[in-house]
Design a binder for these strands. Structure first.
Lengths: 345, 345
DNA sequence: CTGTTAGCGCCTTCAT
DNA sequence: ATGAAGGCGCTAACAG
């Protein structure tokens, strides 16, 4: 009933601890066939399981990484997490996921805890408010990769969507379908969250490229809680928007709920394009046009960059920010067409 | 740049390691105000972070638990995981999630790894094929809770839905709406996965209670990959089903896809009720009637039972299986009504 | 109140 | 080819 240790195995097999340790670490080179067999047998007999905590203490590596996600409610985050977990599993790493819940204080606490737990590296969706910590980690050569967002002035590799282009794609598909009064809605930008800023920027540029005016009333960035209110205000305008770009899946939900409440017909009363993919988008009414992120490739890149750092190979790519292209999934919600009669009930 | 240890702090503060250790563990009782301040200061100065791996080695607790989920693709699983993670976080525990991918071999490997990593306990959605391991864990008094499924003959607490009742609710709501030819579709039952077996059982009983016949052709349990084919076969019957109960969200997707492909009108050509909740069910066409599981309460119970075991209080509840009631979310997809004209396109 | 000592379980030279 | 000894960083009696 008590835990069996390497000493127990050694005793049982009639050899020394170090020989067992050799065995455990696959250093059979100079080991006699007989010794190996004995140890093998003893391990089975005793149902010995090495204590990885003890091993980690000497080896200084835990084969565990951390992911700190800014907000787990984003479908994008969960996709990335799942992919990263799976990839790291292949290399024998476990993953600890922490949800900062958009609170820098929580993020800080999680970073501290994960480092204290000696994880071998961390992938962070940074909340943006813990510069000193990031710097400290960098100075310690602690392996770290940013995902989805970046922090200026820190030589930390960042995996990001080409947000401006993604927004441009959304604008273009709407313009191509004859829409002109296109609004843009994102979550709050008080913390300078990169993708939100960039998506707005891309939206503006795309409007101009298409010869349309940028109207500030059409750009709304607020907390999820106040979104409904803002939507309402926007829809009271004399010239209310005929299309809206939801800058994330969470924003999208708010927009859809609002449309439902107001019995707006989509896409006739209001066309919609969402950035970020949405599960089951094709079962919606109408099916949803989205610009999705290549989550698998992004996860792969993040894993690769983190692994490189963990292995101590500092030769990271020269570009600090690595961009991936969004993909337009043209379905129905962006159309300006008269033969669609979907009504929310 | 080298990692700072407790000795460094001790030296810097001019005290011994043990005093620092006392401080770290909040045993200020006999410590002079001055010593405390000195240590506090040194810790800040040196940016000292205790090495939790070393601590774990002596304390024999890692403040980490594991979750091994049979298949992470179930929305139910992700909900449970998220809730458990959050709950354990409150108690200072981290969570390592592993996806067994419905493969007992993977499950075994993950259990071994997690135990080797000295996690303080594991919550398992058992695949059902590692009896010996479960028994071994039990014998070692290793804290463990089963979720969603159970294994007979093992005194391991199990958190489960009241599956029979849930299936009955689904049948009843359909019968109440005038349906008689009701089919039941689950994923494969070759491994005796408890909830699937029980849901089928509940379905049968409910039919009988309602004076309807049980028809074997209407009960299909196969791998997701073959589901489409089976659906097709079933819909070739002279008396094809007019309603179908999808025993899980993954089954549901297959059913919806099939309906879409065949241009079946839901609910007029085919009524649907799903067990397990589905995200965005209210944006579907038509909105989906489901029997959902109380994931938060289930997660809470699991956390509670695991924590009890971790704290060494063996006084677990006498009932080994703890059941929770499903909740019927009556929306539209179960109706037999003529004024709904939703058509998939 | 604080320091000394002895582990925790494993790995790693360095002898033998 | 195998064993002895020391150490990883921290905690926990036990002295003093």
């Amino acid at each position: 009933m008590k835990k069996v240790t390497i000493s127990d195995v050694a005793k049982h097999a009639g050899v020394s601890k170090s020989t067992v340790s050799q065995y455990l670490n696959g250093r059979y080179e100079y080991m006699s066939e007989r010794t190996r067999k004995k140890i093998e047998f003893s391990i089975r007999e005793l149902k010995y399981r090495p204590n990885i905590v003890a091993r980690s203490l000497t080896k200084k590596t835990t084969y565990t990484i951390g992911i700190i996600v800014a907000n787990i409610l984003h479908y994008f985050s969960t996709q990335i997490i799942r992919n990263i977990e799976q990839l790291f599993n292949k290399y024998g790493f476990h993953t600890i996921v922490c949800n900062a819940d958009d609170e820098p204080a929580k993020e800080r606490q999680y970073i501290e805890m994960l480092m204290a737990k000696q994880v071998d590296g961390i992938i962070i969706f940074p909340t943006g408010d813990n510069l000193d910590l990031y710097q400290q980690m960098k100075k310690l050569h602690f392996p770290i990769v940013f995902m989805d967002r970046t922090i200026e002035g820190l030589k930390i590799p960042s995996i990001m969507l080409h947000n401006e282009k993604a927004a441009e794609m959304a604008v273009n598909v709407l313009v191509d379908n004859g829409h002109e009064r296109i609004a843009m809605m994102t979550a709050s930008i008080v913390h300078n969250i990169t993708p939100r800023i960039e998506r707005i920027e891309g939206y503006k540029k795309a409007l101009l490229k298409n010869g349309l005016n940028v109207r500030d009333e059409y750009i709304q960035s607020v907390d999820i809680e106040q979104m409904k209110e803002r939507l309402h205000t926007m829809f009271q305008l004399k010239e209310r928007p005929e299309a809206i770009i939801a800058a994330s899946d969470r924003v999208l939900i708010e927009v859809l709920n609002y449309a439902k409440e107001q019995q707006l017909n989509i896409p006739n009363d209001l066309a919609i394009v969402a950035i970020d993919d949405v599960p089951y988008a094709s079962f919606f009414t109408p099916t949803l046009t989205t610009v999705s992120q290549p989550t698998l490739q992004m996860a792969e890149k993040a894993a690769e960059l983190l692994l490189l750092q963990i292995k101590g190979e500092e030769k990271l790519p020269r570009e600090r920010i690595i961009r991936f292209e969004g993909q337009l999934n043209e379905r129905e919600s962006h159309k300006k067409s008269k033969d669609l009669h979907h009504v929310f009930r």
